[in-house]
């Protein structure tokens, strides 16, 4: 797994921890919003989903959010799910991992 830092440099917010890694064919962009003020999680999720729309739609890219805000798991799932994406929530120690992918038809 290599970190494609070039991708993260294009983000206009350097304060958020963002990493993108290449795993085989699929690119995974990870955004960590743990500890941030509400409603940063949902707003950041909506913004990033919009930014990576093209990649998400073709299935070449998958977005991963790490948040410690319990209510965000529902809000992101609902909002992004309504946009037609597949949203998966994982309960990890310390935070929640929310993965957004192209919906399986």
């Amino acid at each position: 797994m290599t970190i494609a830092s070039a991708v993260s440099k294009t983000f206009y917010n350097t304060l958020l921890q963002k990493e993108s890694a290449m795993t085989g064919e699929k690119q995974i962009v990870e955004v960590n919003v743990c500890g941030q003020i509400c409603p940063s999680s949902l707003l950041t999720a909506l913004r990033e989903v919009n930014r990576f729309k093209a990649g998400l739609k073709t299935g070449e890219l998958s977005l991963v959010f790490l948040t410690d805000n319990p209510d965000s798991t529902n809000r992101i799932r609902e909002a992004v799910g309504n946009m037609g994406y597949l949203v998966e929530v994982q309960d990890l120690p310390g935070c929640f991992r929310i993965a957004i992918d192209k919906a399986v038809n």
């Binding site: 743990c34 003020i37 310390g94």
Partner: peptide, 8 residues
Amino acid sequence: KYMLSFHV
């Protein structure tokens, strides 16, 4: 879920 994050 206790986590003190300083990356704010």
